[in-house]
């Protein structure tokens, strides 16, 4: 009997959760493709490019393989790059998402990682590089720590690319609108790569 009651309550709860997601999702952006990259942005990001993580997510390794092995874009890469490493770059790609496993593996606290990212951003800006922020890890790369690092990186970005599963609540849509940053919401990691390719100068 208890199980039945629990089950009914559980179902009502599930419906409420779905309803809440539906309301939140109303502000999320419909997925786009590389074809919808605004002409004003296409081909405006120069080489050499550099990829690093912001939050030590292993998604950075995926973006590197996508950009370099699949799309042959020839980015330099260091998941925990130091500021001096990005000084020569004209485009900096920040792969967003905090990972406790990644931070532990790198021997960094979250605070230390935030400091590293701030310094990398400052070095890139001093060198005149433009910043592309990418979020490809979906809902597993959203949460308190991830959101904090996303909020650090979005305002300094020239464009943001997000795989739609990570924007179900419209977080990126809202944040980009607030800071007037162009946002490309895409359906898959592969499409995120296609957008990146269109953004890069030939």
């Amino acid at each position: 009997m208890h199980m039945k009651n629990f089950s009914t309550i559980g179902r009502i709860g599930a419906l409420l959760v779905i309803a809440l997601f539906a309301i939140a999702g109303a502000s999320a952006q419909t997925a786009q493709t590389a074809n919808t990259v605004p002409a004003a942005l296409a081909g405006t990001f120069l080489k050499p490019g550099f990829i690093t993580s912001a939050g030590q997510t292993s998604d950075a390794a995926i973006v590197k393989v996508l950009a370099n092995t699949k799309l042959k874009l020839g980015f330099d890469y260091d998941i925990m790059a130091k500021p001096e490493a990005v000084a020569g770059a004209k485009t900096l790609v920040l792969v967003l998402g905090a990972s406790n496993k990644g931070l532990g593996s790198a021997g960094l606290s979250f605070e230390q990682e935030m400091e590293r990212v701030k310094k990398v951003i400052t070095a890139a800006q001093k060198a005149g590089a433009k910043i592309i922020s990418m979020h490809t890890g979906g809902s597993s790369r959203r949460g308190e720590l991830s959101n904090a690092i996303i909020e650090l990186c979005i305002p300094v970005s020239s464009v943001v690319i997000v795989v739609e599963e990570g924007n179900k609540d419209g977080f990126f849509t809202e944040l980009c609108a607030k800071h007037s940053i162009p946002l490309q919401v895409v359906p898959s990691i592969a499409e995120a790569g296609n957008v990146l390719k269109v953004l890069m100068a030939p």
Binding site: A61, E165, I189
Partner: peptide, 24 residues
């Protein structure tokens, strides 16, 4: 890197949003 390549292809071929985790 080896896993990243597979993650991309699995996502492409199955439509499932797949991700990569490093262990310690």
């Amino acid at each position: 890197d080896e896993a990243a390549m597979a993650v991309l292809d699995v996502e492409d071929q199955t439509g499932v949003s797949f991700h990569l985790e490093d262990s310690r």
